[in-house]
Simulated scan of single mutants.
Amino acid sequence: MKRSGPLFTLFAGLFLALVMLSLNATTGSGTSSYGNIGDSGSSAAPTPSPAPSKGKPSTAASTPAPSRTATPPPDSSYAGRTKDDRASVAISLKGGKAIAYFCDGRTQEAWLKGDVKDDGTMRLTGSDGAKLDGTLRGNKVDGTVDVRKKSWQFTAAKAVKPSGLYRATTEVRGAKFDGGWIVLQDGRQVGIVDSDGTPAAAPPIDPRTGAVTVNGTEITAAPAVP
């Protein structure tokens, strides 16, 4: 009976030792388990971020700018004198076309026509080799006109009614009649009437109505347009 005390103490110590070992083992495995999770997290390869998607190419730069629509010079009339002040020139524009009249008020005259380019240049032609080369800049036309192998420089400024170019083509007392008039900005008139091929200085017209009396017969001259 006296030996049971030390044995009990020995067994109690062994039991306590086993409990401590068990706790240490459990704590160590837990620590190791958390450590493995941490190691696994740190060693995992980083997930690559997705490459930026390429958007559709912009079409703004590649879209051609709308082309400008060519427009002819505005419809208008011009009248002026030659550089030597011996004759007059009038030009009427409409829809990219032009008609012109050169007249010295005595015997020299010529009607010309043609196209007007978008830049204001024009090359008009008439009978017997007559031609007119001009350029519209701003409110005037500068150029040269060739009639019967003679050349004149001229400047024609914009004409506002009643100034401008007038024409009357009819029959008077059985004769073919063709008359042309240039009414300048200061009111002066220059014209020729041709009756069956015979030119003569034209009588003045009333620019407000176009009325004119030729050989005792009243006729009406109208603004000349292409």
Rank of each mutant, 00 (worst) to 15 (best):
L7E: 14
T9A: 13
G13D: 00
F15E: 00
A17K: 01
A17I: 06
L18M: 00
L18F: 04
V19L: 02
V19H: 02
L21N: 07
S22H: 03
A25H: 10
T26R: 14
T27F: 10
G30K: 11
S32E: 00
S33Q: 00
Y34N: 11
Y34F: 07
G35V: 08
N36T: 02
G41K: 02
S43A: 05
S49D: 09
S49Q: 05
K54P: 15
G55W: 04
T59D: 05
T59Y: 03
A60E: 00
P66E: 09
S67G: 11
S67K: 06
A70F: 06
T71F: 02
P72W: 05
P73F: 05
P74R: 01
D75C: 07
S76Q: 01
S76D: 11
Y78K: 09
G80R: 02
R81S: 15
D84N: 09
D85T: 00
D85A: 11
R86V: 10
V89K: 08
A90D: 08
I91D: 11
S92A: 03
K94Y: 10
G95H: 04
G95P: 11
I99W: 09
F102D: 06
C103S: 14
C103D: 07
C103T: 15
K113M: 12
G114S: 09
K117F: 12
G120V: 08
D128R: 01
A130W: 07
T135I: 02
R137G: 07
D142Q: 15
G143Y: 12
V145A: 03
V145I: 01
V147I: 05
R148E: 14
K149W: 13
S151H: 08
Q153N: 09
A156G: 07
A159Q: 02
V160Y: 03
V160E: 13
K161N: 10
G164Y: 02
Y166R: 13
R167V: 15
R167Y: 09
R167Q: 14
E171D: 09
R173F: 10
R173W: 08
G174F: 13
F177K: 06
D178A: 10
G179T: 08
D186T: 01
D186Y: 04
V193Y: 00
D196W: 01
P199G: 11
A200I: 01
A202Y: 10
P203W: 09
V214Q: 02
G216R: 01
T217H: 13
T220M: 00
T220A: 11
P223C: 03
V225K: 13
